[in-house]
Write a protein that binds this DNA or RNA. Structure first.
Lengths: 225, 225
DNA sequence: AATGTCAATACAGTATACAATATTTTTTTA
DNA sequence: TAAAAAAATATTGTATACTGTATTGACATT
């Protein structure tokens, strides 16, 4: 199917720790493992059919992503997130998003901008089909494209790290009335700023985009209670 | 010697992995382990008198801090940093520093501001004594104080992570002529912005502070060659 | 001499065994 | 019966043993 010329076959191999890591991360992000739940090495090892060693290493990787908390000699548990944590994360994300967008205004290639524009139609379709999951996916692509265009590896890395931490809230947020259409409107403004190579404007719009997201997530959390 | 009332004795205990981590990190940051150097688990375990297990875990922790690179089935080596890496890091740091300073303008307690001001005298003394090491330490305290005042745990965490990565360059940078006095001048502007509770100004000054640092480090690197 | 093949070696990946410490349960004592 | 002490158990920390894969070097082949 996929034609591969000179496929250097760089590693089909995944260490078990990565397999375990992916499995546990997915379980946490999809809510199969709940905040506060204890993660015991033996138990996980048995369940996954591996030894404790890769489980331990996977747990440490999860700690790096702030998904679990490790207390020496006590063990690991799935981290819960307070409202303040969410606000803190979004505050940092706003700064990063501002930087990324302003850099995108300077550096994004024309073809990549075209791809960004093409996503608009996908957004509209997802909205009309009320497909929140799809919408959220495209939203990820949109922001990914902006960060990628900065060509700043550290920036991309930090952004991904923050995003993972809020992954659990992304769906519920977008489900709210009119949130999706507002997001699309913001995206249009961002695209316009990039088109005009207006870094100042890009940064400003990005900030207000995240500000809206913050308010929306907070509103959702308060309603839920 | 040290009188301890109600010493809750919260863990004198450090897991071996942390001891190894600290040891290796220190060795990397002080240049005892050089970029590109291979870190072999057996060898390190023997040298440090522990087993491979804590060494492996320490290496993974170092990877998180971007101090070593881990290639599956190949092993670890001390990461080298290109000029681009440094610029990338400082670009992100600039955004974080801008956010932190603008938050400090809003949130810093008066007493903490006083402490910040008190550092000025220390800076002057370090300069007059040509004590670069001391100067750099106070500089760390200064920026730490600003980030602490934001009360944003994620922001502080990311800042620390970035700072560690540039630790190796901090001394050489400050050693250059007139750099220290310029830094102190910048700090005064930052303090003034916080005093005036002027977030906009704080953010701007912070950005130009890091911009100066970036240029200075780059200049140094080019001269060195 | 250049290239290819094979064996030897070194290394990381994984599993397991043992040690130390928390936690839980049971027993003792008031 | 409640609290304290002790024992039992569960769990993490560390060491070691084993496995599989790269890497290296010797040797053979061209």
């Amino acid at each position: 199917m996929t034609e591969t010329k000179f496929n250097i076959n760089t590693n089909e191999y995944l260490p078990l720790r990565d397999v375990v890591f992916n499995t546990l991360r997915d379980a946490i992000l999809t809510g199969k493992l709940l905040p506060g739940e204890r993660l015991m090495e033996n138990q996980l090892a048995d369940k996954l059919g591996v030894s404790r060693t890769p489980v331990r290493e996977a747990l440490r990787m999860l700690e790096l992503e702030n998904l679990v908390e490790l207390v020496p000699r006590k063990g690991a548990q799935v981290l819960d997130m307070s409202e303040k944590d969410i606000v803190d994360i979004l505050e940092v994300r706003s700064a990063l998003e501002g930087l990324a967008t302003s850099l995108a205004c300077k550096k994004m290639k024309r073809e990549d901008l075209q791809k960004l524009k093409a996503l608009e139609a996908d957004f509209e379709q997802a909205i009309s089909e009320r497909d929140v999951e799809r919408f959220v996916e495209i939203d990820e692509d949109f922001h990914d494209a902006i960060f990628e265009s900065t060509e700043n590896v550290k920036l991309i890395q930090m952004f991904r790290n923050l995003r993972i931490q809020l992954y659990r809230y992304r769906m519920a947020h977008a489900k709210q009335d009119s949130v999706m259409t507002t997001i699309v409107a913001h995206h249009r403004s961002i695209i316009r700023a990039i088109e005009n190579r207006d870094s100042e404007e890009g940064s400003t719009v990005a900030h207000s985009h995240i500000k809206f997201q913050t308010e929306s997530i907070l509103r959702m959390m308060h309603e839920k209670q």
